[in-house]
Design a protein around this nucleic acid. Sequence first.
DNA 1: CTAACGTACAACCAAATGGTTGTAGATGAA
DNA 2: TTCATCTACAACCATTTGGTTGTACGTTAG
Lengths: 121, 121
Amino acid sequence: MVVDEEAADRLFHALADTTRRDILRRSIEGEPSVSRLAELYPMSFAAVQKHVAVLERAGLVTKTRHGREQRVRTDPDGVRRARQALDHLEALWRGRVDRMVDLLAEPAGTSGPDEPKETDR
Amino acid sequence: MVVDEEAADRLFHALADTTRRDILRRSIEGEPSVSRLAELYPMSFAAVQKHVAVLERAGLVTKTRHGREQRVRTDPDGVRRARQALDHLEALWRGRVDRMVDLLAEPAGTSGPDEPKETDR
DNA sequence: CTAACGTACAACCAAATGGTTGTAGATGAA
DNA sequence: TTCATCTACAACCATTTGGTTGTACGTTAG
């Protein structure tokens, strides 16, 4: 499996917050310190610190000491892992569509009937 | 903007749960009724019903009445919207890398210095 | 008609989330 | 050294989440 389920939980949970997504964007463009980030949002430093921690546990950002500050940088692999999970879902979808196309393309009566009335679902 | 922030919150939140992602997968492959789904997980019917509701509010699945049951089907557009949000993040990342490459490619001393020591961050 | 099934929804509860304040440890500047 | 800055983390609180049970309603099968 590409990412195990718990990791996927952490990943998507980390992404499921406007502030955290914004932190992620700003940490892509620059490499802000935690206190620089904290200035941007209408909440305490500690709150922003927690958001960064969530992103870090999800593997979306890393922190590196730089003097007395801690700079936040996004980990492109983290974003890529999230995309892979969605890619997998889309692949499933495409697979299903392909199978439906196959059924339609099949000469009538080759195998079992497509919908034997209301089978058992 | 591709998806507004609140919609993105709902989207990623809906994806941030193993059971919900599994429901999504099964609703891609088949088109199970809510009670069929409920049989699959170690929780009550009502709990599964709530999970489906979360997916529905996120625009990831739709329900359609079919006799007395309600079949769940995933909405491929929903998954695509989630991917677009991540695509955007990756584009930002690529943009940053490109800009760094530009700086490196720039003949020395053309514009301002890259890092004037430890400016003000 | 009656019974069984599938669903919807309210009320409730424990645990997690997102925020706060306060305290304390490192580090850099004066 | 001393002071201001940046960070870490604990303790606390309100709200949301994810689960439960119970009740009610529409639909299909006998």
